[in-house]
């Protein structure tokens, strides 16, 4: 699991360092996936019983439900932000005519 998370973070950083806006957006998506998986892993994996207190079920039998609730929240938020980012990218491509970050520097020569 840690290897997958590390790979996701690595791929995200690589994509976010590129010039094309759409690659950057995919990179941010991967970055938040990595963070969510990290949250899941840190809560502790393992256990097959449903997290309901019953006879004969001890705490070690089920996975911690709290990180799953947290991830759900985080996924919804990152979904909203990613869709906003995509719309913003499309709109700025229409207005500014480019998706190359080099041309979006905003110094005095590029208005």
């Amino acid at each position: 699991m840690s290897v997958v998370i590390g790979f996701l973070f690595m791929a995200a950083v690589y994509l976010m360092l590129s010039k094309s806006l759409i690659r950057i957006i995919i990179g941010t998506g991967l970055l938040s996936h990595g963070a969510h998986l990290l949250l899941l892993t840190m809560g502790g994996l393992g256990g097959i019983s449903p997290p309901v207190v019953a006879d004969g079920v001890s705490v070690s039998d089920y996975a911690d439900p709290l990180p799953q609730a947290l991830i759900l929240t985080a996924i919804v938020i990152s979904f909203a932000v990613t869709s906003f980012f995509l719309v913003l990218a499309y709109r700025s491509y229409q207005e500014l005519g480019t998706d190359n970050m080099d041309l979006l520097r905003g110094t005095e020569d590029h208005e």
Binding site: M16, I24, T28, L31, S32, G34, A35, H36, L38, L39, T41, M42, G43, L66, P67, L70, A74, I77, S78, V81, F85
Partner: peptide, 18 residues
């Protein structure tokens, strides 16, 4: 972009703390 990155780091930091 800056804020998405810092949010992802926030989630990661919360995960470690938890």
């Amino acid at each position: 972009l800056v804020n998405i990155i810092s949010s992802a780091l926030f989630v990661a930091a919360v995960a470690f703390l938890y």
